Simulated scan of single mutants.
Amino acid sequence: MPTFVKTADGELERLDQEAAGLRWLAGAEQDGGTRIAAVVAATRTRLEIEHVREVDPGVGDARRLGASLARTHAAGASWFGCPPDGWPGGTTMGRSRQPYLLAEPDGPHSWGSFYAWHRIAVFARRLRDAGQLDPAGAAVYDRLCERLADGVHDAPQPALVRSGVARVHGDLWAGNVLWDGGRTGAVLVDPMARGDHAESDLGMLALFGLAHLNHVFAGYDEASPLADGWRDRLALHALSPLMFHALLFGGGYGARALSVARRYTGGPRAA
């Protein structure tokens, strides 16, 4: 079987973490979940996976991807922010230093509180420390975190996610979707897998675009109906990766992220 090999420094980026995510997501395949690139071998600094032969995608591939992604999410997770089963260690992952919650928190633990304090507040602090966020901008993110923690933007999971927490890919942009024309239309690679709201993967797909995206959404919604207003929440779910891009690349990403944050605090958007 042809394979693909990637290497990393083993510190900032640990490939044994990525392998754990791939295996965890692949556990949903037996129930119709999206096909995940098979792990051949993995260490902290080296990951070998199957090579995927890509094809030009069609509408049918997109609908199959959507339906199978719904079933991957339905495999569930233990709590918001939990790492994959078989997690090899570390409290963060990748260049984004995405925080994980290694144990289930005490007391109420909603999606809104997780997203507020373990995503938006974390990235806002990093932007401020990097000199990319002024006090007025920081106040916008503070208001958003308060609204999130109060449950203002909480919404039900899609119908098939009965555990209350979805099993998500976590970095589902177009580059990590390899169209192969097979049973599930595509094969997924390079996850930052965790327990989260299923709409986080859909928001990431919408952030940078994907071929036949509306057909992916249609296939998903047919297999696992989405909660009312889901399209209006996509930008909110994509806000933390957008903030990370602002950290990495600066430019217009910071202003775009702040505009999204204002939208969900009820404030005016930037021009």
Rank of each mutant, 00 (worst) to 15 (best):
R143G: 15
T92C: 11
Q132G: 04
Q157F: 13
D190V: 11
R63T: 07
L15P: 10
W79E: 05
L148V: 05
R23C: 12
H109S: 11
W117D: 15
R162I: 00
A235V: 05
Q98R: 11
P2K: 12
L188P: 04
G21R: 10
R44E: 15
E29H: 04
G151D: 03
E29T: 05
P241C: 11
T265E: 00
E48D: 01
R53M: 03
S110L: 01
A41I: 00
A75H: 13
W117V: 07
G195S: 10
D201S: 10
G267M: 05
L178Q: 03
L202H: 07
V216N: 09
G66S: 10
G267D: 15
T45G: 14
G219P: 04
G181S: 13
G164P: 07
V5Q: 06
D201I: 08
G175L: 05
G151I: 02
M243C: 09
V189G: 10
P156D: 14
P191H: 02
W173T: 12
A67F: 02
L236V: 08
L248C: 08
G252E: 04
A257H: 01
Y253H: 12
V216T: 13
T7M: 03
V59F: 02
L101Q: 10
W179H: 06
D190C: 14
D150K: 10
I49G: 01
A28Y: 03
H109F: 04
P158W: 08
M204G: 01
F249H: 13
L178W: 01
F217H: 00
L102K: 07
A261R: 01
D9H: 03
G266D: 09
F123G: 00
G86N: 05
G112L: 12
V122K: 08
L234K: 06
R147S: 11
L12G: 14
S163D: 13
E50H: 03
H212M: 04
A74K: 05
T7A: 12
W24S: 07
D171K: 03
A116F: 05
N214H: 11
